[in-house]
Every structure is written in structure tokens, then in C-alpha cells.
Design a protein around this nucleic acid. Structure first.
Length: 588
RNA sequence: GGGGCCGUAGCUCAAUUUGGUUAGAGCACCGGACUGUCGAUCCGGAGGUUGAGGGUUCGAGUCCCUUCGGCCUCGCCA
């Protein structure tokens, strides 16, 4: 070993010991006769002192005076107590310093492209291009450590619960539904392609058939869709599946794990059991399938009360079968016109036609552009149903149910931000349950699976698969924490016949089903056990625990919004030879 | 594919309303001073195709068009 200690571990009790340290020059303060070098490694920061004087080593002083920042060095010397009054309380190692008598430059650094110890904002691109420098920074190192500790804890706990970690293929078969696949051309069979997995879904189901009745994997998943702050083209799932279980068993595991992680990594004792909310209630009351319960502002449906309103935007929508919904913002009458206009923009950006706002005056009279269209009965209905009080703001919208839900859901979040209603310390986990199995796809005039095609319908809804697919509920569930969808899962179909009926409802022909999912259907014929599981977005989970909003912060080598890697330059062209091996000729 | 914001020194940012002289500052870097600093301090210096291309103008960092890149977002993400 080139070192005896790390830069973060030396304390007062080490005084007198001889130590060898390796690390990077985080800071250098040269006083000519005395040079202070702050040595950084992943464990911390240690002040090293180079001194002219008795027993001086001219070579050490010379090297020390020429050390560029971020140079990798090895030093040795005696651990010494810092003189009284010169101790640094901000540093864990601030009581001691290393009196350097040997200094070896292991790797000289060019002037870094940015200052690692500075506070300022840096562009993501720059950080990604020099990620190896970015990751040296204390904050980033801590995030990497946190991620490791979380995965390590998860593995340990699942091991205790009897789960087997099984790896599944990265080169696999394209699944036609869902996200766009990343494809890998086959050299052996030209014109054929592997796909990178969007998730290990089918393999874990096969493992259930195989009798691996408790499986998990921390699995890389790939989806070729546009990126967001919370979406990377390759991401990591904690993937888990159990045989011989019902929803309750799976949710219990998920809840136990969430409680454990919040306790150990956020020192938060989550209340159990977690709230369960139906998909329908989430959509109606919060306008989203992943409600942020850290603040109120519930949405109310006022369609019946306002259907005959003199306000045509309301009455016409109600007659057309749409819904009129509103939320009350306590004390929101203080919002400026500009802020209200901003809320209107949010409604429009999220599909709504507009937003009706009404301020509740001291006399409880409603003010605002739309107020004059509302008669006394509507006024009373609004105020009564919403419980309006003086100084409140009422926000209403009317549209088809899905649209009004999404628009008001977005407005609700924006109001929460603008008025700073979100309790930053709160953790509000819940399970969203009772999902519809299918979702009507207007463009393609058929049903899509809302979760995925392998999700089991509820037994009591099975008969409606052919007669009323839209009414069939799924044995699916999502884990939502603070408005973030951390994961989800379902009880799967374990009977071939049922799986075929679901494919049929999805307008997947028998031939297509056999061609694409024949291996699954085949496996289900050999004594498949009832099973179910879930997948948690590990990057999102770690980001939540770390209190950061972008997944890029918790991924060592992330990609930009255009799915590129500024560090390696991927994606990049390849040689014609490489393409030739694969039987591929580029389109010019 | 659409919308929004951004791009000026290595980094973070300025550049006076409505286009006007030689594009500035802090940090980093280079040189000098300094034996107790701790994101050292002080003195001096160097550093620019204002992302790229085109246009308007007597004159463009500033206005217009195109393009590249980054971030946010809608669509998309079973």
C-alpha cells in the first residue's frame, strides 16, 4: 500500500504517528517558508505542512511550491497537533496536520477546466465532460457513496428476506409495445436484431415458472425515448418478483423496504400502513396518478352544481359530458394578476382551454372576470362546496374529464410552488391502487395496457374483458412519494388462457402474440405459479433520498438531454468495416 | 416532432433605457513578495473569432435568419 491512512481519518489521538497519505491537491497556500497543502481523497481533507527550517528537505519545498491544484501526490510525515488557536473546527481533521518530510508527485494535473472547490454553478455539460473531476468534489462523492449504501442495504435486506439475485440478459428480444427499443444488430444473423431490455419483466416471470420464488435484481434498463430531468435513456431498476403471493404480500415488502430506507438514510420514521388511494380518486382529487400529498389544495368536482350556469364555458362543457372542477386556495386572493396569468398559462400548457379565477372578498362576494356570469345559486354552490372564506382564491376549469384533471393537477402543483405550501421536511408515501387495466388509444383506435400486457385483471372483472374492456380493473399498484412515481408493479397473469384473452383485448392477433410472446405463453403452460412483483426506479429513489431533483446527480456517468455522453462522445459514427460485418449499409 | 430559456476570457458573470470608441470584473493561470495559512493575503501580468454561419446597418456582443450545443418542458416514456 502506498498509504497508511486516508485523508479523512486522522485525529488528535493519532498525534505522533508517522503517516503516508495519497490524494489530490485541493488547495495550496504558499507562504514561502511554509506551504500548506490541503490533501483531498474520498474520505476527507487533511492539512499537510511543508516547512523550511531545521531538517528541511529542499526538494520537498521545491516540489511543494510547484504543485498545481488537483495534482495527485503522496506525502509522508508525522501527525502533529496543530498549535493552540490554529485548529480548524470546520474540518473533521482540523485538530491535526501532517508535517511533511517526503513528497512524491504521482500524477501532475493540468489546470482544471473548473474550480473543484468553488461554490458556483457549473453547466451540466462541463461537469459531464470532465466527470472524473466533477466526481472528486465532496458533494458528488457523497452522492456516489449514498447510492452505494442504498443498493448495499437493499441487497442485504432482500437477502435476509430470502430473495435470490439473478441476472437476466442485456441482449434480448424486442418487445413491440411500450417504449422504443435500443437495437443491437446481430452479426451471425444479418437483418436480425437484439434489443436492450426495457426491464427484465418477462425474464423474471420465467424465473417464477422456474421456481425461483423470490427474485430480485438491480437491473439496468434501456428506453429510447426523449429525456427529462427524471428520465435517462439507461437507468436502473430495483426489480423484484415473488411467487405464491397476493397484492398484500408485495405491498408489504415494498412498504417495509421504503420504511427501512427512510429510517436509515433520512432518519425519518414513516407512518404505516401507507395510505392507499385509488387511481380514480388520485385523478379526481389531485389531477394526477402520482399525487404530492405534502400539501392540500384538493380538487373538487362541481359539475352538478354549475351545469346550468350562465357561464357558457361551464354549461356547454357539462352538456357535452365534461366536468367542471375547482380548487380553493386559502388566502390566495393576494396573488397578483401576473401570477394568476402564470397559472392560466400552466393550465393551457397542460391541455386546458383556460382557467377561471375568482377572488373571495371580505363580504364573501366573488370577484374576477368570470364573476358576473355567475348567478346567486352558482355563487352559493361554489362557496358552499369549496368552503370558501374571505381572502381565498378559487380556480376552476371545465373540460373533458382527463383534460380538466391534468390541467388542474398542474395548476395545483404550481400554486403549491408559488405559495411555498410544500413542506420540505415531509415524506408522504402512498400506494395508488385500482388502476384500469386498459387505456383507450385514440390515435390507433384500440386499447393499450396502462401498466403492461402481463398485468392480471381483477378476478371479478374478468368477464368484462370482452364486453367492456375499459371497465376492467388491474391488480396493479404504484408507490408514490412526494409526487414522484418511485415504482410500481402488479400481480401478473399466470394462466395462458387469460394472457391470450388480454392480448386479444389489446388487438394483438394470436399470430402476433405467438411470434412476440410465444416463449412466455409456452412457459405459462408448464405449471406457472401465481406471482407478482414490482420495480423501483433506483436512480429516482436515490435522488429522493439525496434531496436532488435531477437523476444526473446520482448517476456516475449520465447523458445529456439529447442522450449524448460529452465525456466519451457517444453516440459516435463507426467504421464501414464494422457496419459491413453487421450487414448494414447507412442510408445517405 | 413542438414550445421556452441560455451560449461573452479556463470558470462564474458584467457590458448604462432604444445598436456607438480599444468588450470589463472576481476566481483560476503566469511572475513577484511573504515562516501559520486554512476557499490565505498583497503587487504585477497574460488571457476574447462574444458557440458557428449568414443578413440588416456608416457601425452588431446587442437587431433579423439559419445552424450547433446545453437546460427545462409538451408529445412520448407498456
Amino acid at each position: 500500500m502506498l498509504r497508511t491512512h486516508t485523508a479523512g481519518e486522522l485525529r488528535f489521538e493519532n498525534v505522533g504517528e508517522r503517516a503516508f497519505l495519497c490524494g489530490w491537491v485541493a488547495s495550496r497556500r504558499d507562504h514561502k517558508g511554509t506551504i500548506f497543502v490541503d490533501l483531498r481523497d474520498r474520505y476527507g481533507l487533511m492539512q499537510c505542512v511543508l516547512r523550511r527550517g531545521e531538517g528541511e528537505d529542499a526538494l520537498v519545498m521545491e516540489r511543494g511550491s510547484e504543485l498545481p491544484l488537483e495534482t495527485c501526490i503522496r506525502v509522508s510525515g508525522e501527525v502533529s497537533a496543530r498549535p493552540e488557536g490554529l485548529r480548524n473546527r470546520k474540518m473533521p481533521t482540523g485538530d491535526v496536520e501532517l508535517l511533511v518530510d517526503e513528497l512524491e508527485v504521482l500524477g501532475t494535473a493540468e489546470t482544471p477546466p473548473f474550480e473543484l472547490e468553488a461554490d458556483g454553478e457549473l453547466s451540466d455539460e462541463l461537469r459531464m465532460r470532465y466527470r472524473y473531476l466533477d466526481l472528486r468534489r465532496k458533494k458528488m462523492t457523497a452522492l456516489m457513496v449514498l447510492r452505494h449504501q442504498v443498493t448495499s442495504r437493499i441487497r442485504h435486506w432482500l437477502d435476509e428476506q430470502g430473495f435470490l439475485d439473478v441476472e437476466t440478459p442485456i441482449l434480448t428480444k424486442s418487445t413491440p409495445e411500450g417504449a422504443r427499443d435500443y437495437l443491437v444488430p446481430s452479426r451471425e444473423r444479418k437483418g436480425a436484431y437484439y434489443a436492450l431490455p426495457q426491464s427484465p419483466q418477462l425474464f423474471k416471470q420465467l424465473l417464477m415458472v422456474a421456481g425461483i420464488d423470490r427474485y430480485y435484481q438491480i437491473a439496468r434498463c434501456f428506453r429510447d425515448e426523449d429525456l427529462r430531468a427524471d428520465r435517462q435513456p439507461e437507468f436502473t431498476q430495483l426489480d423484484l418478483e415473488m411467487a405464491f403471493v397476493t397484492e398484500e404480500d408485495v405491498l408489504q415488502i415494498l412498504e417495509d423496504l421504503t420504511v427501512l430506507l427512510l429510517r436509515e438514510f433520512r432518519d425519518h420514521e414513516a407512518a404505516t400502513p401507507f395510505l392507499r388511494m385509488s387511481y380514480a380518486e388520485a385523478m379526481a382529487t389531485y389531477g394526477t396518478d402520482r399525487p404530492d400529498l405534502r400539501f392540500g389544495l384538493e380538487i373538487s368536482d362541481l359539475t352538478e352544481s354549475l351545469a346550468d350556469s350562465g357561464f357558457r364555458a361551464f354549461s356547454a362543457t357539462a352538456q357535452a359530458g365534461g366536468r367542471i372542477r375547482a380548487l380553493r386556495v386559502p388566502g390566495g386572493a393576494t396573488l397578483s394578476r401576473k401570477q394568476l396569468s402564470g397559472l392560466e398559462d400552466v393550465a393551457r400548457e397542460n391541455g386546458g382551454k383556460g382557467l377561471v379565477w375568482l377572488k373571495v372578498g371580505d363580504d364573501l362576494a366573488l370577484g374576477g372576470p368570470a364573476a358576473k356570469f355567475l348567478g346567486e345559486p352558482e355563487n352559493e354552490a361554489l362557496k358552499g362546496r369549496l368552503g370558501a372564506q374571505a381572502g381565498d382564491l378559487l380556480l376552476a376549469a371545465a373540460d373533458q374529464e382527463r383534460v380538466v384533471a391534468q390541467a388542474l393537477g398542474a395548476v395545483r402543483l404550481e400554486v403549491g410552488r408559488v405559495l411555498d405550501l410544500i413542506d420540505r421536511e415531509a415524506w408522504c408515501p402512498l400506494f395508488v391502487v385500482d388502476w384500469p387495466l386498459f387505456e383507450w388509444n385514440e390515435d390507433e383506435q384500440r386499447f393499450d395496457a396502462l401498466h403492461h400486457p402481463f398485468t392480471s385483471p381483477m378476478a371479478e372483472d374478468l368477464d368484462m374483458l370482452e364486453t367492456d374492456p375499459a371497465a376492467v380493473r388491474a391488480r396493479a399498484y404504484d408507490l408514490v412519494v412526494n409526487g414522484v412515481e418511485l415504482g410500481g408493479g402488479s400481480i401478473r397473469i399466470h394462466q395462458e388462457k387469460t394472457q391470450r384473452r388480454v392480448f386479444d383485448a389489446l388487438a394483438i392477433s394470436e399470430e402476433d402474440a405467438d411470434a412476440k410472446f410465444g416463449f412466455l405463453l409456452q412457459a405459462l403452460k408448464y405449471g406457472a405459479p401465481p406471482h407478482g412483483g414490482f420495480a423501483v426506479g433506483l436512480d429516482r429513489l436515490v435522488a429522493q433520498l439525496a434531496g436532488v431533483t435531477s437523476l444526473r446527480e446520482v448517476i456516475a456517468f449520465p447523458k445529456t438531454t439529447s442522450a449524448a455522453c460529452p465525456l466519451t462522445g457517444a453516440p459516435a459514427p463507426v467504421s464501414e468495416d464494422q457496419l459491413g460485418d453487421l450487414g448494414i449499409r447507412p442510408v445517405r
